[in-house]
């Protein structure tokens, strides 16, 4: 197993290098720079600033020195928040984003899993069509739209839940988690329905029924384990997607997460912040993909033996 993990880690290095390089040169292509502003700045000040942030060097020198810093885990100073490093900013924003993503994933897993399993039990019936249609809507509706709708209904008309903030008032985490998780819930519903349908037609399900087990035991003991493997394999990419895609929800609900820093950094041409967040998220995506591959393999006894082999 360690060899497998080690091999995958090695594979991640070229992937990350490509991400770094492409991002580095792409943001430089964007018009404007971090210190361009409406007001004219004295040329000496501008030059001093550029020298401080090494912007006076050639592009390739900047690239080389950035890679050099990166190899020590140093993501550089922020261009827009003087005196603070990108590492500090990520450390401040990430826990909030991670918490939000975790709740969203929980919402997605519970709602999506239940809907998918329920739908799979009676395929092509009302019990199948209703959850699957809702799932389709969930996939189609962007959080940009769903968030305000939920705010209107639950925050304003019904006045049940707070509509913004994070850790300010009880229940303020519910709406963002639901908004962020709903698209993934829909996706998980479709995955688990397909997985369950596949498993329920297997011979060993007939064996389980022939043993005289009640249907709920046939499903919970025999079908779920195999049927949920595609969902498990999807959880890693889903969590990574939730982390990197949370900025819309963070903006709607005024949450001080990494996503908002990320988007603002792009507007501000905060080169190091954009690069740092991108690298950080890319690393997480690689890591969670690997993690869910391992867990999915571990759940299958036939693959487990192969993982165990040195």
């Amino acid at each position: 197993m360690w060899r497998f993990i080690g091999f995958r880690m090695l594979q991640a290095i070229p992937v990350l290098l490509v991400v770094i390089t492409v991002t580095f040169f792409l943001i430089r292509l964007a018009p404007g720079g971090p210190f361009d502003s409406e007001k004219a700045v004295i040329p000496e000040v501008q030059a001093a600033l550029e020298a401080q942030y090494r912007l006076n060097l050639t592009l390739f020198q900047q690239y080389a020195s950035y890679l050099g810093d990166l190899s020590h885990g140093n993501l550089g100073p922020s261009f827009k928040y003087p005196g603070r490093s990108v590492n500090e900013l990520i450390a401040a924003g990430f826990p909030v984003t991670a918490e939000l993503a975790f709740y969203a994933l929980l919402v997605a897993l519970v709602i999506g899993g239940i809907a998918g399993v329920v739908a799979s039990l009676k395929p092509n019936s009302v019990q199948d069509y209703i959850p699957m249609s809702v799932a389709m809507i969930g996939i189609c509706m962007p959080s940009l739209l769903l968030g305000p709708i939920l705010i209107l209904i639950f925050g304003i008309y019904l006045d049940w839940l707070p509509v913004s903030g994070w850790n300010d008032s009880p229940g303020d985490k519910i709406l963002p988690a639901v908004t962020l998780g709903s698209a993934y819930a829909a996706y998980i519903a479709r995955l688990s329905r397909a997985g369950m349908l596949e498993v329920m037609s297997q011979d060993y399900i007939r064996t389980a029924r022939a043993k005289g087990l009640p249907e709920w035991q046939v499903i919970s003991r025999h079908a779920l384990r195999g049927g949920m493997i595609p969902v498990i394999a999807f959880l890693g990419p889903a969590f990574a997607g939730l982390l990197s895609g949370s900025f819309v929800v963070e903006t709607i609900f005024q949450i001080p997460g990494l996503g908002r820093f990320y988007v603002q950094a792009a507007f501000n041409r905060d080169y190091t912040m954009i690069l740092g967040s991108t690298i950080f998220l890319a690393t997480l995506i690689v890591f969670f993909n690997l993690l869910s591959d391992i867990v999915a393999a571990w759940m299958n006894p036939r693959l487990r033996d192969k993982l165990r082999a040195p």
Partner: peptide, 10 residues
Amino acid sequence: DPMTCLNPYM
């Protein structure tokens, strides 16, 4: 078919 009639996950 004993290959497919036993649950591979148990």
